[in-house]
């Protein structure tokens, strides 16, 4: 995973630099520094530094990734969070939050049905009151209306 992350950063650096060198001008027509000056500097340095760090990583090879259980816990939370991002678009801020909290707490905080249920309802209500009513801020609108 560690090496893969470095390789991904390197790929990003190369892509960034490619655009900087191909699409963005180094100088303007009036002879001033153009929009490509800073990106080229950043991109080239990023490639050199990432390669250097990657070589160090390949040489060391002693850093181990965590246990499967650690990864499983994070993966569950990340997956549920991404699911929440999708739900927000579909069902809006209020309904999506109730569903997300109910599902996530039932996975992470097993057996505490009453407490989980209360949190799943009270947190969205409080946030709705704070953001929508008190602060007049935006809550994500729903594409599909749920009967809530």
């Amino acid at each position: 995973m560690r090496i893969a992350f470095f390789v991904m950063l390197l790929a990003g650096g190369i892509f960034y630099s490619y655009i900087a060198f191909v699409d963005l001008d180094f100088m303007t027509r009036t002879g001033r520094l153009g929009p490509g000056f800073f990106p080229r500097l950043i991109g080239a340095t990023a490639i050199v530094m990432t390669l250097w760090a990657l070589v160090d990583e390949l040489r060391a090879r002693n850093a181990t990734d965590g246990a499967l259980r650690q990864w499983a816990d994070v993966a569950v939370l990340v997956a549920l969070s991404l699911g929440y991002a999708v739900l927000l678009r579909l069902f809006g801020g209020f309904a999506a939050t109730i569903v997300f909290l109910a599902v996530t707490l039932s996975v992470l905080n097993r057996g505490q049905y009453l407490k989980n249920g209360l949190i799943a309802v009270l947190v969205p209500v409080l946030l709705y009151l704070l953001l929508d009513r008190l602060l007049n801020a935006n809550m994500p609108p729903a594409l599909i209306t749920l009967p809530l």
Binding site: L80, S81, Y84, F100, L101, L108, N109, I119, V123, P124
Partner: peptide, 9 residues
């Protein structure tokens, strides 16, 4: 485990 999902929200 209770705080986490609330922080995501």
């Amino acid at each position: 485990r209770v705080l986490g999902p609330c922080i995501v929200v």
